[in-house]
Nucleic acid binder design. Structure first.
Lengths: 345, 345
DNA sequence: CTGAAAGCGCTTACAG
DNA sequence: CTGAAAGCGCTTACAG
């Protein structure tokens, strides 16, 4: 609340007057951009407290040519992982005193994308976080001026100088190796269409298969229509050699389980089925699903921290930080849908 | 891309020079704030296109004392409904050329809340959307200057002059009446702790119960630990008169179903169980869950539209729109977990 | 260490 | 209809 008598919210001039100093001095005090005598420091501090003065973001942004804000460019705005990524980044931004903007790129035509991005840039954000979803977003990287700090979430290693990615490929490997460790001789993989990047679960599965000396194996691909996966489960039930399935996501996993059961195959007694993502229902399922959990909130947080380092370096005229592709590790969650091979093995 | 030769991004002065007019004239053209001769209009239009000029958000914000941006104040940032609400609001904002900011209030201490809000306000947003989660947020409404456009999502009817709420109470009523319509004589309700507002599922259930002439019935309250609900399911299985349960959310519903089944009670043959929220797993469950689906994306969209109407009115000096509490209707989704009463009924 | 001056990019009265 | 001037709230050289 501004003190009574003062009509609107206080500005730097009010502080200067009350403290008996000039406006630039208050500015220097605020930003630590030059020494201010102890005496004046105290007076200014008092005045600020008294008036409950908050510097204007926009005036600052205009003078500095850059706003204390970052914006997240995203598609798939309602995808559950996006939520967590955004939340992690937003909290970190907030804690550093940065405003956090979100602009989605889904649902607009290709030629509107450029103007949307220009609009975002015209707000002078200090940096951008781009969260990858498809090829389009990667292309978009090239449309962004090189001098604006940027970090890419996801994508292939090397798509951008500053990048943070979830341990997707590692996750695929871990879950497959876990199944091998249980004693299974082979792990069948079922997945949906994956992006063209080099950090996928399927590649991780293949890594583990190769290490295990199994090369020829093909993965099954399914669509998002779950009945297709149920159908596949029924079909796979016929394969007497099958003992372990790594499904690329939890929904596919439970659908496969349904299909297997339809044919009298028990999970995990006859066939182990692991999912991926550790979605909310994974632990509630019967049997509770073994899965792989990514820490998307942390992914968002690290993306902001990485961006912040660039922003600070730029601001203080230092060398930019070393380019880096940070990977945020997920975690294997073992539950009841996987076990050592039974009669089939 | 700025034309070669021009170092940085073009500003209004560049446009004015190229078009051979004064800066204010370009401004008038841009904002339609005064007539500009056709001749100059064309020259300006050309210059803008040639330079690919975009007005600076922040300069505009400083001059206008208000930025073309809205910010969403929220808690529960990773809650699934929050995501959808945000997405709906963000898309609407984007389509109106507004920047969209998000600031979460969770995870900060009570005394940081005020300064966080002040920070948000110091960016001169044109309006605020507050998405209700708990009492705290409602109190917070009073800390916000009256002259800034605002809409509240959720809360009790009347908590704010401009409000948009999901049909929660109506949903509770609809689902209960649906069960009565199936022939059930009584509907037991199990819910988690609900906010103190007057728009809850439980109140809707009670409305329907009262209409059916059943008043004394108490609801069961459970925590978020699902094993508690499983336990309750086992206990309820003993009640030979029980034929229908309305669970306040899908997770509780499936847990109750587990408990009932543990005791040999079949769903829906012996007992119907309806959930609420229509979460992603509802349709995948066995039996697929009857539930009530809210359109949270639409909720967010309408919130922005309502805010936008206020912003426009204020900007053009018109009377503000009539206060309004809009309700966004959800939808009953009938699936396999509910049926007419069987042997018990 | 500190003030007067100029500028960030735009808009809004003020005079034509 | 249109230009010259002043201002939005802050920061950054420039001189002390």
């Amino acid at each position: 609340m501004p003190p009574s008598g003062n009509r609107s919210t206080p500005v730097i001039k009010d502080v200067a007057q009350l403290a008996g100093v000039s406006v630039p001095t208050v500015s220097r005090y605020l930003n630590g951009t030059a020494k201010v005598s102890t005496e004046k420091r105290e007076k200014i501090a008092q005045a600020i407290k008294l008036l409950d003065y908050k510097p204007s973001f926009v005036a600052r942004a205009l003078a500095n040519k850059v706003m204390d804000s970052v914006t997240m460019l995203t598609s798939l705005s309602t995808y559950w992982a996006t939520t967590e990524v955004n939340s992690g980044a937003e909290h970190a931004a907030r804690d550093h005193g940065f405003l956090f903007g979100v602009t989605s790129l889904d649902g607009i035509s290709d030629d509107e994308i450029e103007s949307t991005i220009n609009r975002v840039l015209s707000a002078n954000p200090a940096g951008l976080i781009i969260s990858e979803s498809d090829e389009l977003v990667i292309q978009l990287l090239h449309q962004i001026p090189k001098d604006i700090p940027l970090v890419l979430i996801g994508g292939s290693r090397g798509d951008a100088p500053y990048q943070v990615i979830p341990s997707e490929r590692e996750g695929g490997r871990v879950i497959t190796e876990y199944l091998f460790g249980l004693g299974h001789r082979n792990v069948v993989h079922v997945h949906r269409r994956e992006g063209p990047n080099n950090n996928t679960r399927t590649l991780g599965w293949r890594d583990a298969m190769t290490d295990a000396g199994i090369q020829a194996m093909e993965a099954y691909q399914v669509g998002t229509d779950l009945s297709e996966s149920v159908e596949l489960g029924r079909k796979l039930a016929q394969d007497e050699d099958l003992t372990a399935i790594f499904a690329g996501n939890d929904e596919t996993a439970i659908s496969l389980i349904k299909g297997l059961r339809d044919e009298g195959v028990r999970v995990p007694e006859d066939v182990s089925v692991a999912g991926y993502n550790d979605q909310i229902f994974a632990k509630m399922w019967d049997p509770a699903l073994t899965s792989y959990s990514q820490n998307f909130v942390e992914l968002g947080r690290q993306a902001f921290e990485m961006l912040y380092a660039q922003i600070e370096a730029k601001r203080s005229g230092e060398e930019p930080p070393e380019p880096e592709c940070r990977v945020v590790e997920g975690e294997l969650i073992v539950r009841d849908s996987t076990a050592a091979p039974g009669r089939r093995g």
